[in-house]
Design a binder for these strands. Sequence first.
DNA 1: TTCTCGGTAAGAATTATTCTTATTTGCATA
DNA 2: TATGCAAATAAGAATAATTCTTACCGAGAA
Lengths: 158, 158
Amino acid sequence: MSENLAPDSSLQQQMETFEETCRTADLKLTHQRLEIYRELARATDHPSAETLHTRLQKSLPTLSLDTVYRTLATFEQHHLVKKVQTVDSQAHFEAQMSQHHHVICDSCKEIMDFHWNSFDSTPLPEDLRQWGAIRNKNVTIHGTCRKCQDVKAGKKPA
Amino acid sequence: MSENLAPDSSLQQQMETFEETCRTADLKLTHQRLEIYRELARATDHPSAETLHTRLQKSLPTLSLDTVYRTLATFEQHHLVKKVQTVDSQAHFEAQMSQHHHVICDSCKEIMDFHWNSFDSTPLPEDLRQWGAIRNKNVTIHGTCRKCQDVKAGKKPA
DNA sequence: TTCTCGGTAAGAATTATTCTTATTTGCATA
DNA sequence: TATGCAAATAAGAATAATTCTTACCGAGAA
């Protein structure tokens, strides 16, 4: 529970940007929206709507799951959050909007961010140029994380 | 309908490999499995289970949607097909197993394959090496395809 | 040809997500 | 500070995608 948290200093900043964006977009700053966004911004584990809802039970005991879904959809339309592409049945979300990529452990399903500047600045292959207007390019890596490898090998966790 | 088809010569080959894999894996070669696989191998548009089911109505009028789902899941376990990562609610499938990447049009949702050898042979960033065992890396590109751009601009289709 | 077990169809069940409706709340204005 | 109203919410019903249950069937071995 103490894992999966982003540093506090930047969270402050991020909340201000969030509030600013809402005001500009005529989105009312409700308690629910603030808490849902804060919870997602704090998380580093790309939670599902259901997971967020569970985590928010303490601070918002009457929050409905529907509100989480609806709110995330609204945020997504306003480019405040992103839906992460997976093969899971449940959708996963992130508030991290800057350019990054994902590594997914096929065993424990954990999704991690990573950066790859040299890739980001590499031009696309020639024949893609004529496909249309490209908005973004992202790398997804699949494999087995160290933790799951160790479990398979019968090692004790550190 | 005449679009979205792979060349016939390689399909023949692919069916043989498919049958061989089934025999080796002790999967019975049922009429349904053969037709479902053939239909997916022929397609180049990454259809959903439901789309496949619809396309197969002619050749297999009694085929149940459940069988399509179950069969695709079986094929996936045996690495005969892949589920394509999208943010869609419906899952999309492909029989193309060789290394390739995807461009997705956010407007018409069309998924296209492309190849990028120089990317495939580029080593991953250093800090990822210690993450665990990496199985594959793939690029997904989002944007608006030429066709949809033209529609927006009010142009007639060619 | 017969036997056996995995595969299939049909419909019920489950899971994830969205809609409907009545109520509440943010916030602009008096 | 009080008031009005559109937007947002909660609760439960509804829908969509996928999976399970059960009884029957057919592929392939003997």
